[in-house]
């Protein structure tokens, strides 16, 4: 399994934590939209997340179109835990350098 980039871990972690819409992930991670969306598309291409459309009726009730949400797949969850433990190990070696990344994934 290829190791995920820190951005991908970040996004994947946000989805795993239950932030499943594009803009919510942006809010959560603090990354710019031009980074998050390509990362999402990439994760989906690699089969680590899958997307679906939210219930039309619920959206219409709020007077807006249905949003697309993302879910972590089983390979995605595995990749996340492997990569996260790698970065955590890295963190143990160079705590100051990786400190910022931990803060935002929490």
């Amino acid at each position: 399994m290829r190791r995920l980039r820190i951005t991908a871990v970040n996004v994947l972690q946000a989805i795993a934590n239950g932030y499943e819409y594009g803009f919510d992930i942006i809010d959560q991670t603090g990354l710019p939209s031009g980074t998050v969306y390509p990362a999402l598309s990439r994760l989906e291409r690699d089969g680590l997340v899958r997307s679906a459309w939210e219930d039309e009726a619920a959206a219409h009730a709020e007077g807006r179109p249905a949003r697309r949400y993302y879910r972590v797949t089983a390979p995605g969850a595995r990749a996340l835990s492997e990569s996260a433990s790698f970065y955590r190990a890295l963190l143990a070696v160079r705590p100051r350098a990786a400190g910022k990344a931990t803060r935002s994934t929490r």
């Binding site: 939209s33 031009g34 980074t35 998050v36 969306y37 390509p38 990439r42």
Partner: peptide, 11 residues
């Protein structure tokens, strides 16, 4: 945020 649509599309 909508500006990010361009890098997304290009990607």
């Amino acid at each position: 945020r909508a500006v990010g649509a361009l890098p997304h599309a290009v990607w």
